[in-house]
Design a protein around this nucleic acid. Structure first.
Lengths: 149, 149
DNA sequence: CTAAATCCTTATCGAATTAATAAGGTTTCT
DNA sequence: AGAAACCTTATTAATTCGATAAGGATTTAG
């Protein structure tokens, strides 16, 4: 039961953007360097993030990516869903198109998974990028360098 | 971000046992039949469940498995951990032996994952097998046959 | 107008994980 | 003694994951 590197790296990348956004677009190259991630892999993460309206891209020289919304209006849930798909600890309780199952109606274990799904969703949806930026500032003041993982 | 069939099938198997326990051990064969699972695969699930003190086995003819504790004293968290390992949406926040990470100290995204881990753990740990048995009775009264998935 | 910087897309590949089966062994009851 | 059941390990096919590669498209700067 793990999130893949898509969600993990993607969240780091977006937080990186939120922290370093001040003037002009941010290149994948600079994110990759700061975060120790591969630029090629980051490129693949940007496609769904763009599609979900979380980032915008600016092509050409001096181009890069910018956040499409204010950090306070972007939740971690949004980011994770863009990268990992709907939250679904098991297929039959997927947020989007749950898998069919003959006896889903009276299924007791299914209720367990639905509760798990909801608890994950509530947690991720109640955290905004702004929250993370502020936490990051606190940590920097404490002398800790940066988020990782 | 999915639980594997180990956790899903295992939870069904244990709930099946809780419902059908009355006198004498329950054979894997009968669980497999009722639940539509393969007996061979169930065998593999029983090893860790036994090791975790959730079930006991009785060997030989007329043998089978019985719950090692009362349903009210078995949580879904226990069962899932026995089968899937420690709850850990990402390695660095594993309940058991979190993976090392240079900058774990000031890591902001790590805090996100820790919250996710805790919300899953609280959900699973606050549900007992007894709760599921009762829910199952309710569902049966409503005319729904059984849990599945 | 050309070169460089950057985003964009698709293909490929090895490694790891998963789900399941198979096969044979051990224990205990009748 | 033989059958019923648990027990353990090995194997395998399929899938997913993480990453790299390669080449294309767009825009800016000079």
């Amino acid at each position: 039961m793990k999130f893949s590197t898509k969600g993990r790296y993607g969240l780091r990348a977006i937080l990186d953007m939120a922290i370093y956004q001040n003037s002009g677009p941010i290149t994948l190259n600079s994110i990759a360097e700061r975060q120790g991630l591969s630029e090629g892999y980051l490129e693949q993460l940007m496609a769904p993030l763009k599609k979900s309206g979380i980032v915008k891209s600016i092509r050409g020289a001096q181009g890069g990516y910018i956040l499409a919304k204010q950090p306070k209006d972007i939740t971690t849930g949004e980011i994770i869903r863009a990268l990992e798909g709907p939250i679904a600890p098991v297929g039959c309780v997927s947020e989007d198109y749950p898998e069919e199952c003959e006896r889903a109606e009276g299924c007791v274990t299914r209720m367990v998974w639905a509760k798990v799904r909801d608890s994950i969703a509530v947690t991720l949806d109640s955290l905004t990028l702004q929250d993370l930026v502020e936490e990051s500032k606190k940590q920097t003041e404490k002398g800790h360098y940066m988020y990782y993982i």
